[in-house]
Nucleic acid binder design. Structure first.
Lengths: 205, 205
DNA sequence: AACTTTACCTAGCAAGCGCTTGGTGGAGTG
DNA sequence: CACTCCACCAAGCGCTTGCTAGGTAAAGTT
């Protein structure tokens, strides 16, 4: 019995946004998992899209499920970082607009499939798995809820009570765009963001 | 070569909400497809949940995919009927509130898995399939968009332009609840509906 | 120069998959 | 009582699935 694969696994030394085997796998997986779903994507398809043989995937990851986990982790980390940066150093309403824009860019732009996979493939993970991802997700939600509370205090939010439900409604309105948004209509995530913000923000008194 | 299964298939003589084989299969499929997803549900699990052997499914349906289609059709038809009925004979804002309530009940209540499957399993259908379901879906969306236009005319909608985007945002906010709503919190779909309506409706002038 | 590690490839196994086939008991019909 | 039809069951076929085992050429290390 050979030593377990796990023992030799690299954690991404640089980023996984590189041309290394790991990086190529994660990018290909993000695209396929988003387009076809996790279960409907076979390791053979995935390997071909990453430019290697199916067996080689298991040199980099112990299982198919761990590839899904890696996709989600990367998506969550990148969007969180982008949105958190947009929050800094602006008035609440301006911050909010920037955050919405970054969030939509993070789920709608080309080669930004990771976060969409994270949003819609949660149930492909067995009950115990993905605690790390779950924690990241909660942190991300807290970021938004805090922002909504700031807007409520300034009287700029459309509904002055229920910040939790407001956040859920907002996230629904934003994340649903994954289901219908198609870039070729002349829309961009930025323009969509501007319009959607207008639904939730109240004019200054 | 035996005659194809299709030739012997019954269209639901009464409703499929009965205890017939077909009805049992559709109900079990709705629950499993929602909980685990279409691909992750095997015909053996599905058969067991419906109280029969796996082969027997194919006496009632020509393929697993046709079971999915039947689930979606039933869900779409029932919710459409319920929401369309709520629209009748009320002032626009009151209609709207009733519609939102019916929609949420249709996707959140126990044994109402069909519509949720319809919302989140579209990509499990191959490109050509489900034209019937797609048409039903478009009709349903038109129903909502008309309602939003009526509210805009009365000055009761939170955003006076962009009825299409308003509809998409609203649907997102409502449909996202499938991902997070859990009944045991003391919430009900009806209460959730009331709060979410307040986000989108404007007070009468 | 000798050795180890990295980054894969090749071949294939065991399990599970959707679906088919050939029945069969019971109810309905003439 | 003979016949037909309905609603399934029992068994299994052929294929695909995630994953494993063993190998290897090239690069890095000592």
């Amino acid at each position: 019995m050979a030593p377990r694969n796990q023992l030799r696994l690299r954690r991404s030394s640089t980023s996984d946004r590189d041309e290394s085997g790991r990086g190529r796998i994660i990018r290909a997986a993000a695209r396929l998992f988003r387009e076809k779903g996790f279960r409907a994507t076979t390791v053979r398809e995935l390997a071909e899209a990453a430019g290697m043989q199916s067996g080689s995937l298991f040199y980099f990851f112990p299982s198919k499920q761990d590839i899904l986990l890696a996709v989600m982790e990367q998506g969550m980390a990148e969007v969180h970082a982008s949105v958190a940066a947009a929050k800094e150093g602006r008035a609440p309403a301006a911050s909010f607009r920037a955050m919405v824009r970054r969030h939509l860019e993070g789920i709608l732009e080309e080669d930004s499939d990771h976060m969409a996979v994270m949003l819609y493939e949660t149930r492909s993970l067995p009950a115990g798995a993905g605690k790390q991802v779950l924690k990241m997700r909660r942190d991300y939600e807290a970021l938004w809820e805090a922002q909504i509370e700031a807007l409520i205090q300034q009287g700029r939010w459309c509904h002055p009570r229920e910040p939790r439900l407001s956040r859920l409604a907002l996230m629904g309105a934003l994340n649903w765009s994954v289901q219908w948004y198609r870039p070729q209509r002349g829309d961009t995530p930025a323009r969509l963001a501007a319009t959607l913000c207008a639904l939730f923000l109240r004019e200054p008194a």
